[in-house]
């Protein structure tokens, strides 16, 4: 991961092949995993169906915590896919990073701010859209001057800070984690202390990867939770 990526220009748009490849792979992985887990669902669940139902209950729990009413039913699928997608996004780069010819070809897509900002944008645009759907355009606009009208500027600023914090938190955590993975790898192969540095680096790398799995899971959880908090602010009428 050296901040040098293969770019392709197509239809006047610039594509970062690293991101696109990783997104394609993680999306495929997510789908295959879920597809495999959901084969032959039964009334008495067993084995893999239990895993899938546990995840569904988990993400439904996140949604219901913020939106206990009937509004929450609309966001179950979004929360589920968002959680699994970000979770797998966070994890893939920990175990597989490909550098070829001085360019990075594979790493976590969420280690790129553009990707996390797109995800945050997606969530916030959806929250605004469903705010209009559930409360009407007038109710949606009223949300900006509540509880008191002079808070209007602060409410508008909040929309931007929500966007920035949601995307940057995820990006920062995953990017930092992967940079450290790379640094430890360089330390292990630096040959500073001969085999000692290799062994120390190996152990450190394992520890850091384990910790990063934890961070990646937590960040996926936080992202989905905050996405639902922001959505509930727009959707639920007090």
């Amino acid at each position: 991961m050296n901040e040098s990526y293969p770019y392709v220009k197509l239809f006047g748009l610039t594509f970062n092949l690293t991101n696109d490849l990783a997104i394609l792979i993680t999306a495929t992985l997510t789908f295959l995993l879920v597809f495999w887990l959901s084969r032959k669902p039964q009334l008495r669940p067993s084995g893999k169906q239990n895993i899938l139902e546990w995840v569904i209950d988990f993400t439904n729990g996140i949604v219901k915590q913020q939106m206990p009413g009937p509004e929450g039913n609309r966001f179950g699928l979004l929360a589920f896919v968002l959680f699994l997608f970000i979770f797998i996004n966070n994890q893939v780069g920990l175990f597989l990073q490909v550098d070829v010819g001085g360019k990075t070809w594979f790493r976590s897509p969420t280690a790129d701010p553009v990707i996390t900002m797109t995800l945050a944008m997606l969530v916030l645009v959806l929250s605004h859209y469903f705010g209009v759907v559930f409360k009407g355009f007038k109710g949606y606009l009223n949300g900006f001057i509540s509880p008191v009208p002079f808070l209007l500027p602060i409410n508008i600023i909040e929309e931007f800070t929500n966007f920035v914090t949601l995307s940057m938190r995820l990006y920062g955590n995953i990017f930092a984690g992967e940079v450290l993975v790379l640094l430890i790898r360089q330390f292990a192969f630096s040959g500073l202390g001969g085999p000692t540095s290799f062994i120390a680096g190996f152990v450190l790398e394992m520890v850091w990867q384990g910790f990063s799995v934890f961070i990646g899971s937590i960040q996926a959880y936080i992202f989905v939770t905050l996405a639902m908090v922001y959505t509930s602010h727009k959707v639920v009428s007090e």
């Binding site: 594509f15 991101n19 997104i23 999306a27 899938l52 699928l77 797109t118």
Partner: peptide
């Protein structure tokens, strides 16, 4: 890269549709 954003949005939308149809729904 605007292309990446579009790519991600399309990929996510397709993923959501497929997951909804094949896993979430049943």
């Amino acid at each position: 890269s605007l292309g990446d954003m579009l790519f991600l949005l399309v990929a996510f939308a397709v993923l959501m549709v497929l997951v909804g149809k094949f896993a979430w729904g049943p």
